[in-house]
Structures are given as C-alpha cells and as structure tokens.
Design a protein around this nucleic acid. Structure first.
Ligand SMILES: [Mn+2]
Ligand SMILES: [Mn+2]
Ligand SMILES: [Zn+2]
Ligand SMILES: [Zn+2]
Lengths: 139, 139
DNA sequence: AGTATTTTGCAACAAAGTTGCATTCTACAG
DNA sequence: CTGTAGAATGCAACTTTGTTGCAAAATACT
C-alpha cells in the first residue's frame, strides 16, 4: 500500500484532502494518544477549526476514539484495525495516563473486565482509565 | 445534627462561609453528579470564580470527587462517608452516564474489578465509566 | 469588640470551542 | 480532459470555559 492514510480515508468513504492525510499521518506516527493541542502543533499549517471538524469526522467514522481523562482534557487515538472494520466502534482496552510524563497510552493487551450493572441499566460503552507511572518514567 | 453542610466543613477544618454551605447543600440535595455549569445555575448568587475555587477546595479535602466523561465535561459528586474520613481519596465504584437523560450517577454498589497492568506500570488511581440507558429512562 | 487571616467578587485576561459564510478543493460525470 | 456540483477549508466573529491579581468583605480567634 502506497499511503496508509489514503487507504484509511478510502475505506471510510471520505474524500482525500491534504489536511485529513496530514492529521492521519500525525496519528500514525504518534506512539501515544494526542490532545487537540498536540495535533494543532504537529499540523500547524491547518486552521484550528479544520482540526476540530476533522477530528469530529474521524470520530463519526470510527477512525479514532476518545479517551476520557481526569483533568478535563480529551485525548484522541487511532482505533485498531478490527475496531475500524467492524462498522461501529467498540474499544475494549484499558487506557493509561502517566502522572509524570503526561503521556496517554492505549494498553491494547489489557482488556476491560466485565461488570454487572444494577437492574434496569443497560450498557452501551465502557471506559477504564488508569493513572500512575508508566514504564518509561519508572526505568 | 443541625446542619449537615456545616458539619462536613467542620470535620474538614474549613471555615464556614455561606457559599461553601450553599454549594454543599446543592450536592446534598442532588441525586446525580453535577457539572460546573449545573452548580453555577443552582448557586447563582455566587460568583463563577468562587465556585471554581470552592470546588477545588472540596477536591483537595476529599469532600467531592471528579468523574471523567467521554464528552469532555467533568462531573463532580460527593464522596461517600468512608471516602471522606479515610484521609486520602479512594473512589472505587463505577460511574454511569445515561446517554438519554444525560445524568451521571455513582453506582456505589458496583466495585471496579481489579486488572493486571503490563510490567513496569504502576497504578495510582483507576476510573471506570459506563455509558448507556439508566433505570429511569428505561422504564 | 478588635484584628490577623481567609474568602469573596470583580475586572481583566487567556484558552477552548462554535458558527456562518465566502473561497477553494475534490470527485465524478460527460 | 474539462466542467461542475457538492464537500471541505479558512477566516472572522463570537461564546463558553477557566485563570489571575487585587481590593473589599467575612470569618475565626484572642
Ligand atoms: Mn485506545
Ligand atoms: Mn462517585
Ligand atoms: Zn510516563
Ligand atoms: Zn437516563
């Protein structure tokens, strides 16, 4: 495949534009989840509004997912392949926030355990976020 | 006990002021977690800045806790009694966000299950948030 | 009651997010 | 390969959210 970003856009039936490619490239080369501000800096040739709208589009198509954090900053990360291809989004891994370096990580190997809700409640989505010290900061 | 709000303030060694009492009363009579904006409306005789500072004070003392949400709005809720009295905060129950009515609830009876992190990661705090339809909306 | 200390309100500001609209770009038909 | 409809973008203006410094007011304590 010549261009990974383009192929993601194609399989989501999105038109291929330079800003979308750039923002996808930013995600593809990032090792962590990104805040809106991170993306603004890494794709600073594009307008802030365009980034807002592009992220929303990617969320709608299930290309990226959000990670809720305790400090009122949303982080965004690429969905894994099967997450994208399966039509609707189902993110079932735990997320980790390092209190020291501030990085947010998808722990793709750590599944969210099942829980039992009280009677009358139905679950659509579940998120598990762990704060602590990451591998790199620990070393 | 004459006044629950006052007694909470006293046991946290905070001076008793009318805004703190009012904001505590708002929490005490709320059945759900509250956004900052909710509190602004329910205690609208006080300045927005005072509410920011009061919530921060309550967080510092472990009187309230935050609930991270997927839509970038922090919700605040009273901590349970043992949560307050034990000195430092340890919130170990699941939170529920209703996609229909928008309410955020502490599921005090649903404990967060344990997970195993990859080698090198240490856990300080854990949050579990479930989205779905709540009991009241289901009925 | 008097006073040191804390808390509050206000103003000014900074940052984050939204909206309408004119311009530019993309996909696609012909 | 063009022409064009529709989509995406940039810009400006705006709203909302959160922060800071400081003077005035309130609280706790002597
Ligand atoms: Mn993830
Ligand atoms: Mn709670
Ligand atoms: Zn770290
Ligand atoms: Zn509901």
């Amino acid at each position: 495949m010549v261009n990974q970003a383009e192929s993601i856009l194609k399989s989501s039936a999105l038109s291929i534009t330079s800003s979308r490619k750039k923002i996808l490239d930013v995600f593809l080369s990032a090792s962590t989840a990104l805040a809106h501000q991170d993306i603004e800096k890494l794709a600073d040739q594009y307008d802030r509004v365009t980034i807002y709208r592009t992220l929303q589009t990617f969320l709608d198509r299930g290309i990226i997912h959000t990670i809720p954090t305790t400090d009122n900053t949303i982080k965004y990360a690429l969905c894994s392949d099967d997450c994208i291809s399966s039509g609707h989004h189902h993110d079932n891994h735990v997320h980790f926030l390092c209190d020291q370096c501030g990085r947010t990580l998808c722990l793709d190997d750590v599944m969210i355990p099942a829980i039992t809700l009280p009677n009358g409640y139905s679950m659509k989505e579940i998120n598990m976020v762990v704060n602590g010290i990451c591998k790199l900061c620990r070393a």
